[in-house]
Design a binder for these strands. Structure first.
Lengths: 134, 134
DNA sequence: CTTGATTTTGTATCAAGTCTAAATTCATAA
DNA sequence: TTATGAATTTAGACTTGATACAAAATCAAG
């Protein structure tokens, strides 16, 4: 079956963990949660699985600053916002990016495949707590 | 002198290295070049210096994927393009970002301080060499 | 079953970055 | 000039995230 996706038990567990996650997870966090389902799983296997799932398009990874990679069950193109105060990272889909990408391509000669946007600032909650503190 | 900038010999050397660099440098590359000017300089000192120079706004750092941080003598807001084939990273100033940022802020409730954009694809040179290879 | 390919395991290793204590340098003022 | 305290550098150990590898285990196909 060419083009098929090989889902071993470990890869499936990784995928499930990401599906059920309430936020973006680091590889370490994925590892911890996978081991609750499949106790013997090796650290490297989680890395392999994450790399494999990325390569077949079932998982997306992204990096923020110099922190560890974050893994995301969302597989459509999207961007991220990060709160500089509390560290929260949320998803956000910026629409109308095509024209921007086209402009960049025209001005630079690059053929552009991907655009990664990260917005940094203060989340609504941290804006409020800032107001309180003098 | 409050608000003044303390430029020690080491920090000055780091700044000079970045000023004279033909590309973005990793901390390791900065270290190597600094040691040609100031042979005894410690690895940690370069890190300290880079952090200090960032904090006073004389240097910018950014991350690409999970690779090492890259340091940039440019201190105005700007973006980056990266070739997925040869790894080249170039600067690019995307104008008209204010409206986008404002829209994101309005839609998410975030107060946005910074926007980091990374475009990935093929540089003009690598597009040509792709054509040749079947 | 048997075979060959793929995957996992367990461990070692690597690279980037951080931390610490002691030594040095620096700025300031007596 | 010398004394004093603060800031910085040094050297090296350490942490963390990620990767490499060989041996064992698993899997699919004949």
């Amino acid at each position: 079956m060419p083009g098929g996706i090989q889902l071993t038990r470990q890869r499936e567990a990784v995928l499930m963990v990401l599906k059920e996650a309430e936020k973006h997870l680091t590889a370490q966090e994925v590892y911890d949660r996978v081991r609750q389902r499949l106790p013997g799983t090796a650290y490297g296997t989680v890395y392999n699985a994450l790399a494999y799932l990325q390569s077949v398009g079932l998982v997306q990874a992204f990096n923020i600053g110099n922190g560890p990679a974050l893994y995301d069950r969302r597989i459509d193109r999207h961007d991220h916002l990060r709160c500089l105060q509390c560290g929260e990272v949320i998803d956000y889909s910026l629409s109308g990016l095509d024209q921007v990408v086209e402009r960049v391509a025209r001005e630079t000669g690059y053929q552009i495949n991907r655009a990664r946007l990260l917005f940094e600032g203060l989340c609504p909650k941290c804006q409020k707590s800032k107001e309180v503190r003098p």
